[in-house]
């Protein structure tokens, strides 16, 4: 049944649960009763207009015991529903929640709504590093549709945005019936989203220096990266952060390499020796081998390949962020400095 008029705020407040009761098959209804077609077992969709409505609908659906999925752009969820990889009895579609599409800048921070697409990010001059990372996600079709909230909700191991946001010490803003919350990204990724909560935004510091994101993989437009790496420099705090995706189940920070960079970089000029760039890559390889839990071996290439790729990408990103003094003749660091898309 398709609800008419429930998009009126008055109709949804309070009656939201009634609406759900009418729409949701009681959890006791066996899945088999729902017509199983190409659309799988999904039997209800809610299309809230505000975060408040979304949270009410989410909570009510969750209380009813139904399997609920949040729908952002759909680039991950819809194919997964089709293939049966994921099943959802209830879909809460967030397309019409305009407040999730807002992005803004404070004095020190950038806040990006969960409904902001990669295409929106790709043109954002306030965060050129993030814009470049967004520009190399998938195809035009994917970038026009996929959202920041979806990247967090899907948490792909080498997800372009996740690797960048991990290096950026991002925080995830959520809303649930218990109110709003703010979690560091690693904690959010480790704990997962509460079933009645919604990611509303992600917050990160304004860029404080060069930021480079690199990845390696199959055809970019069609497949997620195999290995990805982000290096972010903060010239004011004399700090460099580095995250690697695609080696572990989640992106990992390369803390030993970060400490090395802090001591090795001449922060007044942003200069570093070519030997240091090489050493930075080596430290990332060492750390990559110790990332747990590691991705199971599979079509993403062997662990050894991914460790090696992490080191190459990190060294290359590091060299692009800084001024590298000329390498000794025919030194291998020239390879890093040459850059170019992997």
């Amino acid at each position: 049944m398709f609800r008419r008029g429930s998009d009126r705020a008055g109709a949804v407040h309070g009656p939201a649960h009634t609406v759900l009761a009418a729409v949701l098959p009681p959890a006791a209804v066996p899945v088999g009763v729902v017509p199983v077609t190409a659309g799988g077992t999904t039997s209800a969709m809610f299309r809230p207009r505000t975060v408040g409505e979304a949270v009410e609908m989410l909570a009510a659906a969750h209380d009813s015991g139904a399997a609920v999925a949040l729908l952002g752009g759909g680039t991950d969820l819809v194919p997964a529903l089709r293939s049966g990889e994921r099943a959802a009895e209830v879909v809460v579609a967030l397309r019409r929640v305009l407040e999730l599409r807002v992005r803004g800048a404070g004095a020190d921070s950038l806040t990006i709504g969960a409904g902001v697409t990669y295409t929106d990010l790709a043109g954002w001059s306030l965060s050129p590093g993030l814009a470049r990372a967004a520009r190399v996600v998938g195809s035009v079709q994917i970038r026009n549709t996929g959202t920041v909230g979806g990247a967090l909700g899907s948490a792909r191991p080498a997800g372009d945005l996740l690797t960048f946001l991990t290096a950026a010490d991002a925080e995830v803003l959520t809303t649930s019936p218990r109110g709003s919350d703010r979690l560091p990204l690693p904690r959010f990724l480790a704990e997962g989203l509460a079933p009645d909560a919604l990611v509303t935004a992600v917050r990160l510091a304004r860029p404080g220096g060069p930021q480079v994101y690199l990845k390696i993989g199959e055809r970019q437009a069609a497949y997620p990266a195999v290995v990805s790496c982000a290096v972010l420099v903060d010239r004011v705090r004399h700090r460099l952060t580095c995250a690697v995706g695609g080696v572990g189940l989640l992106p990992a920070r390369m803390e030993a390499a970060e400490r090395y960079a802090r001591d090795e970089v001449d922060w007044s000029t942003g200069t570093v020796s070519s030997a240091a760039a090489r050493r930075f890559g080596d430290l990332v390889v060492e750390a990559a081998t110790r990332i747990t839990p590691a991705l199971p071996a599979g079509p993403r290439g062997s662990a050894e390949y991914r460790w090696h790729a992490a080191g190459v990408l990190a060294g290359r990103a590091f060299a692009r962020c800084l001024h590298v003094t000329a390498p000794p003749a025919s030194g291998p660091v020239g390879d890093f400095a040459a850059g170019g898309q992997p």
Partner: peptide, 23 residues
């Protein structure tokens, strides 16, 4: 049906999208 091939491309509110990734 995975958003990879573009054969199902449409404009959705004026933006290019793969219709297999939209409910």
């Amino acid at each position: 049906e995975q958003g990879r091939c573009g054969a199902c491309s449409v404009l959705l509110d004026g933006r290019l999208a793969a219709s297999c990734t939209v409910l």
